[in-house]
């Protein structure tokens, strides 16, 4: 059974103009999003993961433009959208977003009820008491107790975790097809983080959402994602199902990201850290962008950009190490440990 493709990105390029210079934020990314799946996009800050999903909603900053490629959704090419009017048919209604910081994404001057009803009235043509009833229903769904009383309260009366629940309620209130969560739990405590993630999982089933998670922490997405895409310097370097990426990662950058997790470290030993800094995206990148920081880099990595090598029908990676002519390189030991499930007594 082949799942339906709900959103299809082809060779997307995004450039920003900054002080007269051009920054290549997204360098030819292709990605198919399947209906009903949950995809996680993982990368360091500055890897372009947020910029990438912002193009789906027309939320790029004014100095950023899509210079090539297409984003097909529902037979429309979102990359060709120019006016705000066009975007309003998609933004919120079809594709909604939950932002990182619940402190800044709510209006402090309006009650929670007002902010949810606003979204419902705009997108579902419900008004007055009907809108209010729907809002109460949704607040209950996101796990806020006593919603009728809470509706009349202001954001400052909610804790961080509760605020994030409200933000999720607003996003879901528009009945979108795709829900994008941009670092939904980075600003939250570990206990609250786990609760919010399980809430998002529940909502996904209940509202038949397709979810996209963006995060820098691979540990967070293991439980929620069906597929994982690893981004580096404006490009997806590896994509596969969750099991494939965690248990048999192929790209050295994925190895590096996994081995720098403190959960995998052994106390008293050095934790692996990625040397160097991400590449300067103002300059033209030759070859593999990760090569200068890659201990396994081959000569060709500095010359020619690797194509995708297919590992399995669902798993592909952009690294020359997968070329049949490349020397055989074993991933670091920590990753083997992960495969056997031989770590952590928790």
């Amino acid at each position: 059974m082949e799942p339906n493709i709900i959103l299809s990105v082809k060779d997307l390029e995004v450039k920003f103009s900054l002080r007269g210079k051009t920054l290549n934020a997204i360098r030819g990314v292709s990605l198919d999003l399947f209906e009903g799946e949950s995809l996680a996009i993982v990368g360091e800050s500055g890897s372009g993961k947020s910029v990438f999903v912002k193009t789906f909603m027309g939320l790029l900053d004014v100095n950023g433009t899509i210079t090539g490629g297409s984003i097909l959704y529902n037979g429309q090419d979102l990359a060709k959208f120019k006016t705000e009017k066009e975007w309003l048919t998609v933004r919120g209604r079809e594709i909604a977003m939950v932002l990182q910081d619940p402190m800044t994404s709510l209006n402090p001057l309006k009650t929670i009820g007002y902010q949810i009803c606003e979204a419902i009235e705009l997108h579902q043509n419900l008004h007055g008491p009907a809108a209010k009833e729907t809002a109460i229903q949704i607040l209950e769904d996101v796990g806020i107790s006593d919603p009728e009383r809470r509706m009349k309260q202001y954001p400052h009366e909610f804790s961080g975790g509760m605020r994030q629940r409200v933000v999720i309620a607003i996003a879901v209130a528009c009945r979108p097809k795709i829900l994008i969560c941009d670092e939904p739990t980075t600003a939250l405590d570990v206990t609250i983080q786990a609760q919010i993630l399980s809430l998002l999982k529940q909502l996904k089933d209940k509202y038949h959402l397709t979810t996209v998670y963006i995060t820098h922490d691979l540990g967070v997405v293991a439980g929620v994602a069906d597929r994982v895409a690893v981004m580096y310097a404006g490009d997806i370097v590896e994509i596969g199902t969750c099991e494939e990426v965690f248990y048999s990662p192929r790209h050295p950058y994925t190895w590096a990201l996994l081995s720098s997790l403190p959960q995998l470290g052994t106390k008293g030993e050095e934790l692996f850290s990625i040397p160097g800094t991400p590449p300067n995206l103002f300059a033209e990148i030759r070859g593999d962008a990760f090569a200068p920081r890659n201990p396994y880099a081959l000569k060709i990595d500095y010359v020619k950009r690797p194509p995708y090598f297919t590992v399995s029908p669902t798993h592909k990676a952009r690294t020359w190490l997968l070329d049949p002519r490349a020397p055989k390189v074993d991933p670091p030991e920590v990753i083997g440990k992960l495969r056997k499930g031989g770590f952590g007594s928790v």
Binding site: A222, Q263, G344
Partner: peptide, 16 residues
């Protein structure tokens, strides 16, 4: 125990 159970593990089968 609650805190320990909330640690995200980079392992899909444990985590799921």
């Amino acid at each position: 125990r609650a805190l320990l159970s909330a640690i995200p593990m980079p392992d899909p089968s444990i985590e799921k």
